[in-house]
Design a protein around this nucleic acid. Sequence first.
DNA 1: AATCGCTAGGAAATCGATTGCCTAGACGCT
DNA 2: AGCGTCTAGGCAATCGATTTCCTAGCGATT
Lengths: 332, 332
Amino acid sequence: MDRAVTISQVAALAGVSTGTASKALNGRGALRPETRLRVQQAAEQLGFVANAAARSLQTGRTYTVGMITTDSIGRFSIPVLLGAEDALGAGQMSIFLCDARDDPIREQYYLRTLLSRKVDGIIVTGRRTQARAPIGVGLPVPVVYAFISSADPQDCSVVPDEADGSRRAVQHLLAIGRRRIAHVTGPEHHHSATIRAQGAVDTLAAEGLRLATPTLYGEWSEAWGRQAAGILLSTGADVDAVFCGSDQIARGLAEALTKAGKVIPRDIALVGFDNWDVMVDGCQPALTSVDMDLEGIGRTAAERLLAAINGSPAHGQHARPCRLVPRASTAV
Amino acid sequence: MDRAVTISQVAALAGVSTGTASKALNGRGALRPETRLRVQQAAEQLGFVANAAARSLQTGRTYTVGMITTDSIGRFSIPVLLGAEDALGAGQMSIFLCDARDDPIREQYYLRTLLSRKVDGIIVTGRRTQARAPIGVGLPVPVVYAFISSADPQDCSVVPDEADGSRRAVQHLLAIGRRRIAHVTGPEHHHSATIRAQGAVDTLAAEGLRLATPTLYGEWSEAWGRQAAGILLSTGADVDAVFCGSDQIARGLAEALTKAGKVIPRDIALVGFDNWDVMVDGCQPALTSVDMDLEGIGRTAAERLLAAINGSPAHGQHARPCRLVPRASTAV
DNA sequence: AATCGCTAGGAAATCGATTGCCTAGACGCT
DNA sequence: AGCGTCTAGGCAATCGATTTCCTAGCGATT
């Protein structure tokens, strides 16, 4: 609980002025090498760590960015966060994490806090239902939206290209010879559900095909997957593959279909979406899935934010391609 | 991109000195109510937000704590983080999040960064294998370990009482009339696995009972759960309940047992550990599980940290009780 | 009317690091 | 020997907010 060492103590020990000490430690100014070394040794000896507040007061830079997750920090924001941390850590920046929990009041409060702390930039992320209202206008710092996108097209957003993901999933199913493909997904009012469904329909259309049954909208849950399996089986639809809007739905389907005597992938092939480890590995057989590369999104968002901080802001929405990860559920 | 408003601009607009403006905004000093109001209105009008760096330089407080997760931020550290955020947010403190990714170098680097930023305190969390070495000695700020514990008994750690969790699980099974209880858990070298197993054994011993089979150690995965089911069935062990070291293991067991024709809970009752929503809800039937209340741990850790910051440090390890959440897998 | 006591608010130091400006002294050149 | 040049390093202002005096001015009291 010793109070902190200041640069003047280092300067005193090295027998120089504080200004000189500062220059020595920051590699600035014209100093004799031995002087520089003497100061560095003094700093080392005292365990000196510069006070970031004092430094940023002077320089105007804090080497800090704020990250606001609109929904509660969860499965989707974590990888984004990690990716951002990765990209920023290399630039020696720290992250202020704020969890707005879907509450606009909290969100504005956090925004204010971040501005008061003079962060160099802000990353906004959150569950992806649809484009969100900009978090603020005329802010004194750059903002990048990650995973979620801003309704203002001038804002910089980095999002997964979900239609691309659907395309890859469906093309994979076509490639293994399936033609009677069904699609089971989340709630119709959810942006991701509709865009993924549309992607599937479009991809099939390009091949002159259609979905084997109309898209089944429901919830993002295993229970719905099980239920949907029942629907598919009971209607007697002739289906040889199901592309699911999420891994959870796919897993529910897998369970129910297996129970009903269907063999996956022989009778029915399955593709999920999210590539969520516990789901794809826990599923029997292991589930082929679409990976949105959330870490990559976080990393890209952080890079764009850094660029904006350094004076080269990017605008508009950047959609990143998805990746298909084939596993046993589509292994022919 | 307007540069920030300073307190002297507010003071000028209100026709007072900066000192007076500061007092007005912070409710200090002796000012006429109308003066105070005038300053507040000026601040409002200009959108003034105090520069945290300048303030902390003066006051020595940053209203910021650092949170270092030793392993990559994951399933266990998130709830802890949320709980801490909750407790700290109420005190208007912000969190610096640092992900050390099991790398001691990163960890020390982050520690240094946090000290340079003059955080008021540090919370260390991470995957729980066993007590970890203290993150530093003689640090100028208080440190609290959450979920994981420090090897130094003088340090303050807040951890789940896993033996208590086991006791609750086993007593619940006893209460619904089961006597031939098996235990399937993770790797033997994992602290949580051994302590949970011991808790189960002790609880049974207190009733004059023993495990129906020796504890089955394996991995924390569904695959191991399925494999363990095979072992239990093939050895012909007469078992009417299985207490599992994790929800994933339990789910694997549930699947394999059901497939083998056993009815859960009629033939075999199941209890998991972690109360992980996607597992307990996805399991069929829904899984009874032990909840370690990770959010509560985060909250408690944050509270203890705040107490330490305010001069009342706590020492030693604080074990918090678990909670049993009964569901269909043990419903008689 | 003179003194005392208050109150409201101002002046200036302070926190710690950075940085532009300035100068002492060494060296070189004619 | 005298002058110019260059280098190493010191001085002091600065960032923005807080806080400790300190004082002007007003009212009350005897």
